[in-house]
């Protein structure tokens, strides 16, 4: 494990994204490249137009559903834990617990092991494989919710609040804003788990990905189109992308009560700015406790922190004796921001 082989010399931020020189591939590039390893299907990580794409089969299916032919010229499925040699570099994908198919990228070269987490969470999620801890020398972590005020409550508790509200206001339609990939399906699975077995109504934008989840073996229970529903759906639950919550589209429903499922809902002021009447703190990103727990568990002496509140996590990691620095990647966090202006 020579000093010259230290990852900062061969894994670097370039204008097109994070680049592994000896393996000649990019991770989640934000502009088209020859060879991309993609951690998961969210649009700020998986972009169209790459020549070759290496990702889990589920992520590739999501990219094909979203981009069609533009998903990539050559799609190379790599199942979890399978090793792939790219030049002298060994790459494998390990579950990240973020959304269906999401993966951490484990890169080994020159005696060093780097794990690029992509986005991840540690809370249980019935719609995807759970995060696995991979001990490593350098851990590249996300930091979306890296302030100690962000501590997500158990998601089933939040769903219980939603169902209590439906009980209390049976004459209103409960309209839940949830991002179309991952959050919407997790919410549906949580509702089923909480005993809600009536049909759930979907905004059209959510239908293809829900269908894809079902094809991938994730049971979401009976689903209906909200747009084609004939009644005003009083007492029912409708799931829609957050952008639809402020739309004329919702006028068709019975006195809609807007709920919003997002980790940002933790801070009341934010939730109020968003105009949600029922904020639900349900996040697919690690909260502060999960971030710090993960940094301890992977045991990496060195941590690179990407998009989010880098400075707070770096401050914490340094206090724990880790080497920590910010890794400025362009174009990250945009998918979340689509959801939350």
């Amino acid at each position: 494990m020579s000093r010259e082989a230290h990852p900062e010399n061969w894994l670097q931020v370039t204008p097109r994204g994070l680049y592994c020189r000896p393996g000649d591939f990019f991770i989640d590039p934000h502009r088209p490249v020859e060879r991309a390893v993609v951690t998961h299907g969210h649009a700020d990580h998986a972009r169209p137009g790459n020549a070759a794409v290496i990702a889990t089969p589920q992520t590739l299916a999501i990219m094909q559903a979203r981009y069609g032919e533009r998903a990539g010229a050559v799609l190379h499925p790599l199942a979890y834990h399978q090793r792939l040699s790219l030049g002298p570099v060994t790459v494998r994908l390990v579950p990240a617990g973020h959304v269906l198919g999401s993966a951490q990228v484990v890169i080994e070269w020159g005696g060093w092991r780097v794990v690029v987490s992509g986005d991840y969470k540690r809370q249980p999620d019935p719609t995807c494989a759970a995060f696995e801890v991979v001990p490593c020398d350098v851990f590249v972590t996300e930091a979306t919710f890296a302030l100690p005020v962000f501590r997500h409550p158990p998601a089933d508790e939040e769903v219980r609040r939603l169902l209590h509200s439906v009980d209390l206001f049976p004459e209103r339609t409960h309209l839940v804003g949830a991002y179309s990939l991952g959050k919407a399906q997790r919410l549906l699975a949580l509702l089923r788990h909480a005993g809600w077995d009536r049909p759930v109504y979907l905004h059209g934008a959510l239908e293809p990905l829900c269908q894809l989840y079902e094809e991938q073996g994730v049971d979401l229970g009976p689903l209906r189109s909200a747009t084609r529903a004939e009644a005003d759906l009083a007492g029912d639950i409708v799931v829609a992308p957050p952008s639809a919550l402020a739309d004329r589209w919702l006028r068709r429903f019975a006195d809609p009560l807007t709920a919003m499922a997002s980790g940002w809902m933790r801070v009341r002021q934010r939730a109020r700015q968003r105009g949600a009447e029922l904020p639900l703190v349900i996040s697919d990103h690690a909260d502060w406790d999960e971030l710090t727990q993960t940094l301890r568990e992977v045991g990496a002496p060195e941590v690179w922190v990407t998009h989010g509140s880098e400075e707070a996590l770096i401050h914490w990691a340094r206090g724990e004796g880790m080497r920590a620095r910010a890794l400025s990647l362009i174009g990250r966090g945009e998918e979340e921001q689509d959801a939350l202006p």
Binding site: P148, R151, R268
Partner: peptide
Amino acid sequence: RCDPVLFRWSYDYVGDLAETAALLWPE
């Protein structure tokens, strides 16, 4: 109970003492 730097950044972000303290309080 909390690192003063992290408290300050959190308070700046949240803007309300009761809410900041409620969220930061070590579980």
